[in-house]
Design a protein around this nucleic acid. Structure first.
Length: 297
DNA sequence: TAAACGTGGCA
DNA sequence: TTGCCAAGTTT
């Protein structure tokens, strides 16, 4: 870490850590009694999904499946059904697959090493680092959308980070990470918490920010975002909308569902045909011999 | 590398 | 009302 960053890091730590101690939310997966498995489940659920929607579903999940082995003993379809309406149901499928790997290859235990976590289905760089840090107190570089935004503003002076994660952002996050394991884990969650509660994407609460006197973005007069255009996701009429409707029908059904009932929720038959095939290919839907379908058993 | 992948709340 | 955004991963 160069001297410039060393000074920056110290200034940020001195301001952010006391703020976090006061303002941290009491989330169930942060409580001391929460198992590493509970932390892993929370991290996968939180991918692209707000805390408020995750919380009740997470409670039901860890109550039903308190260990990887318990989930592995259920069907993937049960996992998808219990996913409810969190979105991206392939995450439920991957979490189930991860539970099977944990049971069969890791003694039913969630590993503490980032490199090992990274091999699990549905676990990418962020989730591996987050579980190592939050479940095991390890020193890992956690870079999520909150961290990227806080660093972009406070250190880089930009309104928002670039559309895609860059090497420079990872290097910056690594440079700011405290040496001590436990401190590093707290630092990671503190930066994320600031991004979630104060340094938000829209209408940041700069007046309440502990970094306001050192934030380079604020000191520059809070200039607007000037990077490459960010792609909004289309929704109406997309395959994603069509898939979502068909999976919802299967989630809500008690047994197998006829093809016509699935197609009835979408006006364009050619598109729903294609989407149903894709759902089967993805393993989210299981075809039976009699032209009926169900969640995978 | 960029596009696909769900869902709902908020400005 | 419409668009943006939420603790990303996979191909």
């Amino acid at each position: 870490m160069g001297p410039a960053h060393a000074a920056t890091a110290a200034a940020l730590h001195d301001r952010l850590l006391p703020w976090y101690a006061v303002h941290r939310r009491d989330l169930p997966w942060r409580r001391p009694g929460c198992s590493p498995w509970g932390v892993l489940v929370s991290e996968v659920m939180l991918q692209q999904t707000p805390v408020a929607r995750v919380q009740p579903v997470w409670q039901r999940w860890v109550a039903a499946w308190p260990t990887p082995a318990a989930l592995a003993a259920s069907s993937p379809g049960d996992a998808v059904r219990a996913w409810e309406r969190l979105g991206y149901p392939r995450r439920a499928l991957r979490l189930h697959a991860a539970a099977v790997v944990l049971r069969d290859e890791h003694g039913g235990v969630v590993p503490a090493q980032e490199e090992v976590l990274r091999t699990l289905p549905g676990v990418g760089d962020y989730t591996a680092a987050a579980v190592a840090a939050f479940a095991f107190g390890r020193r890992s570089t956690v870079v999520d959308t909150n961290v990227r935004r806080v660093h972009a503003r406070s250190v880089t002076g930009a309104a928002l980070p670039a559309p895609a994660l860059t090497r420079a952002e990872v290097a910056l996050a690594a440079a700011l990470l405290p040496e001590d394991d436990r401190e590093a884990a707290t630092w990671n969650v503190a930066v994320m918490e600031l991004g979630a509660l104060v340094c938000t994407a829209r209408s940041p609460r700069c007046g309440a920010c502990p970094l306001r006197d050192v934030c380079r973005w604020r000191l520059a007069g809070s200039p607007p975002y000037d990077g490459p255009p960010r792609r909004g996701q289309a929704w109406e009429g997309t395959d994603r909308q069509c898939r979502g409707r068909m999976v919802q029908v299967l989630r809500d059904a008690s047994g197998p569902v006829g093809a016509e009932e699935l197609h009835s929720v979408w006006p364009d038959r050619a598109q729903s045909d294609r989407c149903l095939d894709a759902l089967v290919a993805d393993g989210l839907v299981e075809p039976l011999e009699d032209a009926r379908f169900r969640l995978p058993v």
